[in-house]
Nucleic acid binder design. Structure first.
Lengths: 204, 204
DNA sequence: AATGTACATGTACATAAGTACAGAAACGGA
DNA sequence: TCCGTTTCTGTACTTATGTACATGTACATT
């Protein structure tokens, strides 16, 4: 996240717009959606107050645009599940690693929580908030059926909340037990036996 | 929930304080924590602006007090699980009914979501938000072991989110599948073909 | 009934936040 | 270099919100 200080006065609309968006997303994630103000964003982005109003007609528009950015970030996390799904039933360790990766990514977790909770009172955000859950269900359905896919997705939502509130409560054992139970996978060995490769994630 | 209009000018500190608290809780639940202002509360409660500042030294204090009320409401829902837990393994229908009851209670669900998400950025609320999850884990642990209890509680967190976003997605079948899978209950009606482990014992 | 006290009300003021906008600054092309 | 255009900045205005407080009102006590 190189938020380049963005030379003041310099003309670079694209970069400026992006800097503002990033700053808004950052504030939502770290201080909550209630802390999102023009001035806070301007300060965080290192731009003048006027710039925030120039690029986004209203604070609501800015907020929604920031949520789109966050949704895309979460989507990106989701994409890393995909390669492991085909072999999931035979070897769940891969998906579980990815799920843990996601749950340990404090930023993604906070982004997801902000999105989900804001959508509760703002219907405009509903589709955005549900997008990744629905994609996950779609992806899983092909392998474990729709019902179990839904159960797994719901569990991961819950795990996201827990990860946001007390990260230390998220353990490989816990996630393994839950996912294998819900997906209908029955391991012959104990869940804790996987000490495989910690998957490298190419930065998106 | 009869929010008696509360005759204006009438002296009744207890009722007044309660009306303010109820109103604040209502606003948090229906419009989100961001919509909580003294004026909104006063209007909702049908009292004068001054009353809200008289009974609560600051808006933060009022907000926190409202969250306590909400946490107690959620706690009350939780209590209805208890009678069904001893027979849960033999007859899961009872608990599942209660879980569905809770998930269909839009108010309790919204309250829980507001609590959980606010706690993400406000440490003061953490204990409050985690209380019911922890109680549930405690209650369940005696019957299905700590690990599975944690998994069930996490799933219910996720189901709460889903219930808040799209209530229609919460079905008896879905909840039944998830809870029986996670709790290690094997019903005759679901040919999920598991090896018949008994529930694992509590953790180390 | 008179009166003192605790409660209730509405106004008023300070601060914060959203938004508009006039002017400055940078860039591109004569 | 000079000029026009686009972008950037800071200020100013309006509204919303938190909070204080002076005044009004109901009730208990006498």
């Amino acid at each position: 996240m190189t938020t380049e200080p963005l030379a003041p006065g310099k003309r670079d609309p694209e970069a400026r717009r992006l800097a503002i968006l990033r700053a808004a997303a950052e504030i939502i994630v770290t201080r909550g959606p209630g802390a999102l103000t023009h001035r806070a964003v301007a300060s965080q982005a290192g731009v003048a107050l006027g710039s925030t109003t120039q690029y986004f007609a209203s604070i609501d528009e800015l907020r929604e645009a920031a949520f789109v950015v966050l949704a895309e970030e979460v989507d990106a996390s989701l994409a890393s599940f995909a390669p492991h799904l085909p072999t999931m039933l035979a070897d769940p360790a891969g998906v579980i690693d990815e799920v843990l990766n996601y749950l340990n990514d404090a930023r993604a977790v906070s982004a997801d929580i902000a999105l989900l909770s804001s959508a509760t009172t703002e219907p405009r955000l509903l589709e955005l908030a549900l997008r990744w859950t629905d994609k996950l269900i779609d992806m899983l359905s092909a392998h474990i059926g729709h019902d179990r896919a839904e159960a797994v997705a719901t569990y991961i939502d819950g795990a996201t909340i827990q990860a946001g509130l007390r990260p230390e409560s998220v353990t490989r054992e816990g996630v393994t037990l839950a996912l294998t139970s819900l997906a209908g996978i029955h391991t012959s060995s104990h869940p804790t036996s996987t000490t495989g490769h910690p998957p490298e994630k190419s930065d998106a």
